[in-house]
Every structure is written in structure tokens, then in C-alpha cells.
Amino acid sequence: MAIAKAERLMNLALCLLGTRRPLSKRELRESIEAYLEAGSDDSFNRMFERDKDDLRELGLVIETVENLDGEVGYLARRDSNRLPPITLDAEEAAALGLAAKVWQQARLAGAASGALQKLRAAGLPEGVDPYEAHGALEPRIPVHEAAFEPLMLACRDRRPVTFDYRKATAARPEPRQVEPWALECWRGHWYLAGWDRDRGAERVFRLSRITGKVRARNGAYTAAVPDVVTVRETVAGWAGDIADRTALIRLRSGSGYPLRAKSASVRELGDGWDELEIPYGHGLDAWLVEFGPDVVVLEPAELRADVVDRLRAVAKG
């Protein structure tokens, strides 16, 4: 029966961590049963390279050293792999425990647990069970978008990517070449900010509108990465959260609570209607139309015209 990969990785890690001098591939092959059973040199070499990469993903710093005879050896030095001293009290431990379980994406959930386990091994207090302590609060970071993981890796490694993207109002996707900067989750959706090479400008993409595969490309970034990337502000602007003007509307008494909650002022008119001042940002016209005959736009004229226009379209059926 083939030897499980976890067993093989574990053995390689222990060998590299346990040695004071670099171990050659030959020595490693003789110490690790799975490598002895690997068959040809080729398949052993491929397996060994892959395993080293996997251990590096886990954070192991593996050095490659050439000895006097020109033979290459490997070791994981203690001083480059040891966790620096860290002391956390029981409250801090419980808070981290809560944070470690919010990811709903397998890779990040595994990585967060892994971090906590390393801290646990380093003496993180166990008095409080993080999975029970904050029973009342269950924050979750949703990740439903297939594009998330490749983009996360591309952001991390600063690698350009290409993908097909369908704009919200476009029927067909178009290919994009992007230098990814940062990913942000807002109101449960993921967005990517980056440099759009074809447009020569910064762009924000919604991950759910990426169709097909995200492919990482070789080569360096052509545009400088800004120190601060502001995805949320861009998205909030489109979502109508950023209002630079005020609109005046009439609202039937007792209706339209969300409009009232957002309003700057409410004045009762006493005839079954109230007059409200509300922030006027992107998309307000569409929102107001939802309230049908319970809303009348007074000003500005532009908003009033937009709302009438929309109502006419619906009235025509």
C-alpha cells in the first residue's frame, strides 16, 4: 500500500528539523521509507521537490547548502524555524480562538487552525475552550467564489493574472489582464482591486462576475502598488452609500421605514404624508421606485425625472 502523503511530509520535516548538518538527497532517501519505495530516481526526485514546496507552504524555512564535494544538502535550521517567544493570556487566547474559526474557505480555515495549533504547542492557555466560550457570537467569512483562492495566492505572490470578466450590465464576458493588489470582503461579497493593464487604470472587480479560470502569469508588475488600496470606498460609491447631495421626498405616513432610518430630517405634514430629506447617492432613483405610490420625489428635478422615467417603464409593462 502506498505510504500516505502526510506521513511522508512529516518524516521529511522531522529529518530536516532534527539534523545539525545538511542532509543530501541520498541520505534523505535512505532515511524515509516512502522515498525508498518511490521506484525510479525520476519519480523520487519529483516527489522530493513537491514535498519540499509543500513544507515551505507550511512555513518551514529549508536551506539548500552545497558541501565541499559539491554535493547539495538540505536542512531546516532551528533558529530560522523557531517561533519567537509569545505569551498570551486566557482572554487573548479565547479571542484568537473565535477568530480562528470564522473562515469558511478550506485553505484559510486550515491555515488559521494551523496557526492556533502552533500557538497551542507554544503554550497558548487552554482554560477557555474557544469553540464554546463565545457561543452567542458566530461571525463567518463567506467565500463562495471559485476565483478567490487563485486570486488570494496571486495577491500574496504578486503575480499578474488573466480572467474573463462579465461586467454587471454586459451580456458577454471579456478577457482582462490584471495586476492584483488586494481582496476585500464587504457585505458578504468579495472584491479585487488591481491594475487593469488594457485600460491602464486601477479597477475594482467583483469576484462573482469572474467567469472561468483565473490564470497566473509570469513577469513583474508594470504599475506601482499603492500603499493603501481602497476597495470599499469604490464599491460603497457604486452602492449609493456615498452621497454628495440631498434629495427631498414625500413619504406616506407609517411606510418606508428604511428611508426614514436614512433620512437627515422628517417633517410631518399632517395630511397622511411626511417630508424627508435623504442622502442622494448612486442608485437612489431605483430604490425610491420600490416604494411605489408611497413616495413622491420633490427635488432635485433630475432625480424626479429619473423616478418618473422608471415608473413609466413599469407602468407600460
Binding site: 512555513g59 523557531r82 517561533l83 491555515a111 488559521a112 494551523g114 502552533k118 504547542a121 500574496r156
Partner: peptide
């Protein structure tokens, strides 16, 4: 000894 935290873990 306890191991350093990896980039993905951090």
C-alpha cells in the same frame, strides 16, 4: 520546539 507561523497562517 514550536514552529514559526507561516505566511498563509498569519
Amino acid at each position: 520546539e514550536p514552529l514559526r507561523i507561516a505566511a498563509d497562517e498569519a
